Amino acid sequence: MFYPNSPQTSPQLTQIPYGQQYAMMQRQIQQPYHPFATTEPQARLYPYHYQGPIQQEQGGFITQQSTAASPQYVQMRVTPVDQSIMSGYPNQTANGSSSSSFNYNIHPQQQQQQQQQQQQLRHHAMPVGSVPLQDDRYRKQLIVNYLAPDVTSTDLHELFSRFGELDGARIIYDKQTNMSKGYGFVYFCHAEDAKEAVERMSGYEFHGKWLKVGYSTNPLNIVPSNSSPYVHAGSRGAAG
């Protein structure tokens, strides 16, 4: 039997160049792979992502010199942007860049009308829970959420009447099932009393439920100042 490094198959040491006398086997001759043993700084910083320098080929596509990437890492192929796409944008300079302001050559009167329309939209648009300043009635009506099913309009009136005089209180019921929808409205005579009720009743436990109280901004629920107070009856038909 002959071994790869046996004296019968191995040459004389004098015939082997210096430095390879003890590297006779194939696994010894093959050098191990060192990912950080390279002179390129990109490979030292990113050993798993770097795959060699990027070269520009004919046709405008950018390719990489090395083989496919590892399945664990996804390499994105980048193509140059066609400058003709950006030619339609206004205020574009000769080098292809555009300024931040756009001039669509709008007539001054049209621009003024658009600004007025935007101001009107901001004036009428009102986020949930906010209180408008032009109508004091919005500051007097509250919406009470997360009410228990057994709470009546009379219970709601008695709960909030300790903060001040009320114009009314009612629970909203479903017309088909005649069941409470879980929320109601309270109408105060003074805005200061309503503000105190919002601050003190939010998070209050009532009939096993934690109440959420806020201003009601729905104009359909506003009680006119010259109208008669609501009837605080315990029956659902009268309260709904």
Rank of each mutant, 00 (worst) to 15 (best):
R162E: 05
G164S: 00
T177E: 02
P80H: 12
M126L: 09
S228I: 07
Q113R: 11
Y173Q: 12
I222S: 02
P71C: 07
I143G: 01
G184A: 01
Q141A: 00
R170H: 15
F160I: 00
Q72T: 08
Y22E: 11
D136I: 06
R236S: 08
V74N: 15
T217K: 04
E40H: 12
Q134W: 14
A94M: 09
A23F: 03
A233H: 06
N5S: 09
P32N: 07
Q83P: 08
I222W: 04
L211F: 05
M76T: 15
S153L: 04
P4S: 08
S161I: 10
H207G: 07
H49Q: 08
Q42P: 11
A43F: 04
P219G: 01
A125R: 10
P17L: 03
G203N: 02
S228P: 07
Q134F: 07
F163Y: 03
Q114H: 11
M76N: 14
E165Y: 15
D150G: 14
T152D: 09
F163Q: 01
M179A: 09
Q55G: 09
A169R: 00
V223W: 02
S100D: 07
Y33K: 15
Q113F: 12
Q72N: 14
L147H: 02
I143H: 01
K175Q: 11
Y215P: 02
P108T: 09
H34T: 08
F102C: 11
P127L: 06
G208R: 15
I29V: 08
A194F: 00
V186I: 12
G60V: 05
Q116D: 07
T67P: 09
P127M: 06
A125M: 11
V131E: 05
M24D: 09
Q134C: 11
H232K: 09
R170P: 00
I16W: 05
Y146S: 01
Y204A: 13
G208C: 14
Y46K: 15
P108C: 11
P47N: 10
W210Y: 05
Y215M: 02
Q176H: 13
T38Y: 06
P149D: 02
Q75L: 00
R162I: 15
V223C: 03
G52W: 04
Q65P: 09
N91I: 05
Y146R: 02
N103P: 11
Y73L: 08
Q42S: 11
S225K: 13
E196F: 15
V223Y: 04
A23G: 10
F206H: 06
N105K: 12
P4R: 13
K209P: 00
Q12T: 07
L142D: 00
M25L: 06
V128Y: 13
M179T: 13
V144W: 01
H123K: 11
N145R: 00
A125D: 05
T79S: 12
N226E: 04
Q119W: 14
Q118F: 11
P108R: 11
T9F: 05
I16S: 12
E199C: 14
P219M: 01
Q119L: 12
S100T: 09
Y73I: 08
G60Y: 02
Q116G: 11
P127D: 10
V231H: 13
L45W: 09
L133N: 07
P47L: 01
K212C: 05
Q114Y: 12
L159D: 00
S6Q: 11
R200H: 09
E165Q: 13
P224H: 12
I85C: 11
Q110D: 04
M179L: 09
I172T: 01
R170F: 02
T154D: 15
R236I: 07
Q55N: 09
H124G: 07
K175A: 13
I172P: 00
S161C: 11
P47R: 13
S180T: 12
M24E: 05
T217F: 02
A239P: 10
H157V: 15
G59A: 06
N105W: 13
H124T: 08
Q65S: 10
